[in-house]
C-alpha cells in the first residue's frame, strides 16, 4: 500500500497545501500569480524566467511541495518518478511559436523548445537532479484512476516515490494540482493512494 504524503493546489486566487489555504489573494492573471509565488519562495534561479507558463507553474508547484514536506528532498537521485498530465499539451506555447513565424516572421528557437509538454518534467529534473522515471500524458480531464494505478506500478517496479502533477493554463486561468506518494504514511494524512482518495483530494471535497 502506498500513501499520499502531501498535495498542493494552485489557482488564480489561492495556494492550498494539503487542502488548507496557505495563501489567498484577489484573483490575479497567471503571470502575476507566478511572480508572487516565485518571490514568496525567495528563489534565485535565473533559468526560471526563461520557462513558459506551464513549466513555471510545475516548477513552483514542486518547490511549494518541497517546502511543505522536506522529506521530498531526502530521496536519492534515482528514486523519484515524475508523472505529469494535462488536457492541452503545450497548446499555449504552440500558439505563440506559430505566431512567431506566421506572416513571414522568424521562428523563435526559445519558444520552440517549450512546444513539448514534457519539457516541464525536464525543468524539474534539472532543478532537483532527479534522474528517475518520466512520463507525460494528455487526457481531457484529471484521470485519478490512471495516476493511482500508474504511480502504484512505478513504486512497485523501481521508484521509491512518485510526484504527480496536473497543470492546465487556459486563457488566463490556472488549474494545477500536485501530489507526493511514498511507500509509508510519513505525514499521517491517512490517504492511501487509490482512485477515490485521489479524486477526492483533487476536487477538494
Amino acid at each position: 500500500m502506498n500513501y499520499i504524503n502531501s498535495y498542493c493546489h494552485i489557482s488564480n486566487s489561492a495556494i492550498k497545501i494539503n487542502g488548507t489555504i496557505s495563501n489567498s489573494y484577489e484573483a490575479m492573471p497567471i503571470d502575476e500569480v507566478i511572480k508572487a509565488i516565485y518571490l514568496s519562495l525567495d528563489l534565485k534561479y535565473s533559468k526560471f524566467h526563461k520557462m513558459d507558463q506551464l513549466s513555471k507553474i510545475a516548477f513552483l508547484g514542486i518547490e511549494l511541495m518541497k517546502q511543505a514536506n522536506p522529506e521530498i528532498s531526502k530521496y536519492g537521485e534515482n528514486d523519484i518518478a515524475l508523472l505529469f498530465s494535462n488536457s492541452k499539451s503545450s497548446a499555449a506555447t504552440d500558439i505563440k511559436f506559430q505566431e512567431s513565424y506566421a506572416n513571414g516572421g522568424i521562428p523563435s528557437p526559445s519558444l520552440f523548445v517549450y512546444t513539448l509538454p514534457n519539457i516541464l518534467i525536464g525543468e524539474i529534473a534539472i532543478r532537483n537532479k532527479w534522474y528517475g522515471e518520466n512520463m507525460f500524458t494528455v487526457s481531457n480531464l484529471f484521470d485519478a484512476k490512471y495516476y493511482a494505478e500508474y504511480a502504484n506500478i512505478l513504486i512497485k517496479k523501481s521508484a521509491e516515490a512518485v510526484l504527480g502533477g496536473w497543470i492546465n493554463v487556459n486563457e488566463d486561468k490556472i488549474e494545477a494540482f500536485f501530489f507526493f506518494v511514498t511507500k509509508k504514511d510519513l505525514k499521517q494524512l491517512n490517504l492511501p493512494l487509490n482512485t477515490e482518495t485521489l479524486d477526492k483530494i483533487y476536487k477538494g471535497v
Partner: peptide
C-alpha cells in the same frame, strides 16, 4: 551573463529582425 546555446540562437533572430 551565463547565456546558453538557445540564447545564442535567439540573438541571431534579434540581429535579423
Amino acid at each position: 551573463l551565463g547565456l546558453d546555446s538557445i540564447d545564442a540562437l535567439e540573438l541571431i533572430v534579434l540581429m535579423e529582425n
